[in-house]
């Protein structure tokens, strides 16, 4: 991301015109009114600028990183909760094992696998995944919304994760 390297305001403008309206839409679907969605999407984009140096383009797609920023801001702002997260600098943290360079997928390969996996989900799985991401619904809230047993909601979410793993060619364990 050019923003990270050069702190280039022109590059930032491009990111802004793509993501600010999408973040605003995302925040509205999570229950924000228009005014607070507007304010918070501006805040999210300001955070993109300020934290750009922490973004590692070899590890995650820009969309994934920006999604995580917007998600965390929305938890802080609307739920008045903290989002507990691990800290790679923590002495107790167990680091990732080394991946052989020839087996590691590039970020764009990962994104295209993920995109195909989402497109290939059966409707009933895609529905619960979307409610989980877009509407900030817990498992029980999804169950009430769709008038389904809680166990069905959980198993659909599990199946969708299994599909995602399978599309990466992994064995399923859980």
């Amino acid at each position: 991301m050019a923003v990270a390297e050069s702190r280039d305001k022109n590059a930032f403008s491009h990111l802004f015109s793509h993501y600010a309206p999408r973040i605003k839409s995302y925040l509205k679907s999570r229950g924000a009114n228009d005014a607070s969605a507007e304010e918070l999407s501006q805040e999210a984009m300001a955070a993109v600028w300020r934290k750009a140096e922490r973004y590692d383009s070899s590890k995650a797609a820009a969309s994934t990183w920006i999604f995580a920023l917007a998600r965390n801001l929305s938890i802080d702002a609307f739920r008045k909760e903290k989002r507990p997260a691990f800290d790679p600098e923590d002495p107790a943290f167990i680091p990732d094992p080394e991946t052989a360079p020839d087996t590691a997928l590039s970020v764009s390969e990962t994104q295209s696998i993920v995109r195909d996996a989402i497109a290939g989900l059966p409707k009933e799985q895609s529905e619960v995944v979307r409610l989980s991401f877009y509407q900030d619904m817990t498992h029980s809230e999804i169950a009430m919304e769709l008038k389904l047993p809680l166990g069905t909601v959980k198993s659909r979410l599990r199946l969708s994760m299994r599909k995602l793993r399978e599309s990466f060619g992994e064995e399923h364990e859980n």
Binding site: I23, Y26, T64, F67, V114, F133, M161
Partner: peptide
């Protein structure tokens, strides 16, 4: 982190809402 990539894709997919 794979599930977060799903989040990133879904963010790209939303219908944009006009910004001020």
């Amino acid at each position: 982190s794979k599930a977060e990539s799903v989040g990133g894709e879904l963010l790209n997919d939303v219908k944009p809402v006009a910004i001020q």
